[in-house]
Write a protein that binds this DNA or RNA. Structure first.
Lengths: 240, 240
DNA sequence: CGATTTGTTGATCTTACTCAATAATCGTGG
DNA sequence: CCACGATTATTGAGTAAGATCAACAAATCG
């Protein structure tokens, strides 16, 4: 257990990067955590992990693939809440009400770990550092949500797309994947929905960013050519 | 300890409605919780509870008055994250990083309780129901933030204001205050900032809602005349 | 009581949405 | 493997919701 990034895969069979603080839990404690984790069978594209209205019993950690989480509003419209990548935890929003108020759908073939919430409550009552870590995970989710709020309240379409791509780039980087070349697992309509933009706007801005030489997009494949410029786009600064 | 609403004031000197589950903690446990709470001196309008960049050491519970929480973006602009009323907890977003990434400013004469975070970690490791409750409080904050995301991503200016006022109305009701007549502690510019709207738009929609007979506004005093109609405004339904 | 901040209203402009048409991609079955 | 329809993405033209600019009114404060 070195002081490597907490995003490093570390947690035995479960791969719970987010759930484990490599330098905070003993090997024995990690075994205990592993023992409560259920490894689920892979999800196919379009399959649901949980549905709005279902009773909450577990949180989930993405092992591979990617999961889209969304709510359904009064008119039955989807509102995308977030996209979850390997190592990230889903379902934290249901702990309070014990009912899922959102739906989680696999965007590609994915595998997830199921972690019964009761077991987390039990185990974190005995493993002090697990409790501490859960508080941090929940707190981080709050901060991530607040950043999105700022994006939606204040930023232009171009800034939103720029920030969205930068965010993805950073998250892939943390997972030791290419930060400049990756595949968008979600549809344009999901991006638009998430960022509060029309599909057409998403499309137009992708092409605009291409024209500017910031990146290339071919279908779902993105290559970031000028990360610095993209960062400027995300922060409403002029690009040379 | 009856099964009264968890919003009922219950927690000895601290008034921590949110922090206490009346029916889940024993009287002795409540005493323990009370003992870690520091009662702070009142804050004057405009005073800061904590500032962006400061080291995080405590969370705070509003006892009376109201607190505005906002971040500062790249250009030094405020982005309002939320308004906190009596019984609500602030500072949860800093647990992860141990640094305040936002600023909390009193909107009127307010009093707050300071609760050292280390003590919460300690106490929730021994009081099982406090741990359970903290998870729920954090989870609820996540869900509240997600609802705002939906508001910002999808709703029109009128719907946002409608939902904002309905939300305030409900929160006052939970606090046993009038749900139809209350004072807006924040400036119009704060409302606009929070909802992603220009001040002028907020103003215009207030007058429009008045013309529609849904409510009356006089400065900061609001009276909701037709709560049903306001609810419809908030949910993009036609108002008769 | 004047000065400064805060709120309202009007006129104009801009961004991003809507509608519409076309193109590309995906999935399925022959 | 290719052909088919269906979904998804791109591009264009017109529109609308809300922003911005500007002037004025009202409230707040010293």
């Amino acid at each position: 257990m070195t002081n490597q990034s907490k995003f490093t895969v570390s947690c035995g069979q479960c791969g719970l990067n987010e759930l484990c603080l490599p330098h905070a839990l003993t090997a024995q404690e990690i075994d205990q955590v592993d023992s409560i984790v259920k490894r689920s069978k892979p999800l196919q594209r379009g399959e649901y992990l949980y549905n709005t209205g279902e009773v909450f019993s577990s949180i989930y950690a993405v092992r591979s693939g990617s999961i889209k989480v969304f709510t359904i509003d009064d008119e039955g419209e989807e509102q995308v809440i977030g996209f979850y990548l390997p190592g990230e935890l889903l379902g934290l929003d249901a702990i309070d009400s014990k009912l899922h108020m959102s739906t989680a759908k696999s965007m590609e073939t994915s595998s997830v770990c199921e972690i019964p919430y009761d077991s987390i409550e039990d185990l974190s009552a005995t493993i002090r550092n697990l409790q501490v870590h859960m508080y941090r995970v929940l707190s981080r989710e709050i901060r991530v949500d607040q950043e999105l709020q700022m994006l939606l309240a204040k930023k232009t379409a171009e800034e939103r797309i720029g920030a969205f791509l930068m965010n993805l780039s950073l998250r892939y980087e943390q997972r030791r994947l290419s930060s400049t070349r990756f595949r968008l697992p979600m549809a344009r309509s999901d991006i638009g929905n998430y960022l509060g933009l029309a599909v057409e706007t998403v499309s137009r801005i992708f092409t605009r960013l291409q024209t500017m030489g910031v990146l290339t997009v071919e279908g779902k494949e993105v290559e970031i050519l000028d990360r610095n410029a993209l960062c400027n786009v995300a922060h409403s600064r002029e690009v040379a």
